[in-house]
Design a binder for these strands. Sequence first.
DNA 1: CGTAAGATGAAG
DNA 2: TTCATCTTACGG
Length: 208
Amino acid sequence: MPLKNKGGYSYSENPAYTLAGETFFQAPTLDLSQALLGCILVHDSPEGLCSGIIVETEGYLQDDPACHAYRKMTPRNAPMFGPAGTCYIYLIYGVHHCFNIVCREKGVGEAVLIRALEPLDGVELMSLRRGTTQLRDLCSGPGKLVQALGIHPGQNGHSLTDSALGVLLPKTPIPQAQIETSVRIGISKGADLPYRYFIKDNRFVSRK
DNA sequence: CGTAAGATGAAG
DNA sequence: TTCATCTTACGG
């Protein structure tokens, strides 16, 4: 599946990026949460291709009370126990969907929540889906970016290495000094754990 | 079965 | 600050 940017050329042919494979996603969850910052999330949907730079993430570990896979496997969290690079998409508050990337080896229920993107390709389509032209409001929240990219709950359990969704790795990762850490947003359990990561001074991170 | 809480977003 | 909206998980 050729992921193409707005210039019409394939991302895999762009010397600045490589498509992430399963090995990349097998990293320890908190390492991957940081490594994903500066990478590009792409969705080649039927309506058009949209993408954005990942600027904010949160890690969810197996022994972490805020994690959906804390302790045992259920029908909902089952995709979290799949192979690295699996998509875990779930409904939150009955209204929005959140997008996660499953990491580590099969059988371990850990994932990275993608919380915000800096819009790149398909801004016009994303504006249409979001009902706003404010660049800042397109992908600055986990529910917003799912809506903007047109990510569908039917893609729950799909693999990022083999579907319309993919992650592009920059040849030169962002410097560690640009990564900021904080507690996670909107949770009550495990509220003191510093598993949220975002790019310093980036205006596209979610608010609060 | 009944029900409370939830990894949010938008409007007031 | 409030509320929309609904599924999952868990207790009886």
